[in-house]
Amino acid sequence: MPERDLLLDVRGLKIEFGTGAQGLRVVDDLSFNVRDGETVALVGESGCGKSVTALALAKLIPQPPGRFAGGEVLFGGQNVLSMGEKELRRLRGADISYVFQEPGQSLNPVFRIGWQLREALQIHRPDQATTEEMVRLLKQVGLPDPEQKLRAYPHELSGGMQQRVMIAMALACRPRLLVADEPTTALDVTIQLQILELLKDLQRQLGMAVILITHNLGLVADCAHRVNVMYAGRIVEAGPTEEVLGHPRHPYTRGLLEAVPKLEGSAGHLKGIDGHVPNPARMPSGCKFHPRCPLCAEICREREPADETVREDHIVRCHFWQKGGDS
């Protein structure tokens, strides 16, 4: 992929919840970036800080109880975290847009689809809040009978159609970055495939960047140019998708890959990862993954590993990334 302009640059982001001495750090020293038109994935188990990170990108975390304890989120060179309400209002929806997991819960059940779509347009592009534009948007996301769908209530649409409406709303203001937080987890695999193909097509047409947040490594392998593997609020491995998933270096990435039942090859015995994601209130010392790690040694309990470069863009945070060979 040719080098493109940097759209989003997250540097050393730290997010805490709660106050004072009881503040729990759920995201710590998190850095990653997204270039124009690119799909970047954030993967990890639930509770690893993926969704909090996603919300932080448009400063959507309520403060209190949340608190940005350090770092910056640069969008097109401007720090989102230091923006005021007025600037944020312009950013949200117009520059950064979101699609969430449960389309049924993101749509207002008492208003017709058309009303909700018009609202999004009126805020950011009031001169284009017309029925023609709404029909065009619904057509763009592949909804059959768009005119009729404008008059429908959310419950009259299936999950897949609701998610298409959400995508239409997210794209209404032609954002430069679409943050999709588990956009297909609630959908059937056949519908999931349709939605992903739609997102890929739209990305190609509109040239927007996508951050895909998921726990499904299959989706990452299918869609993302680059991937960031998160654990306990940190990125433990990052790089081009082929590199990270084809030649994983971090024991956590390997564990995740080995835990997924496969469709092809021998069914074999799967290992999984023992234990569970640590509670931020009782974060282990040193490397946060050490209590679950098969390679754990003395140094892992004492010292948190720093970023090390495997090659070019491929970065890993593990004392023993060279151990365990290539898989």
């Binding site: 392998a221 082929e242 084809g246 092809e264």
Partner: peptide, 14 residues
């Protein structure tokens, strides 16, 4: 079957 996202298959398809 073809709709299931599978890591190995997707990496091959790339």
């Amino acid at each position: 079957l073809s709709a299931v996202p599978d890591v190995n298959r997707a990496l091959k398809a790339r």
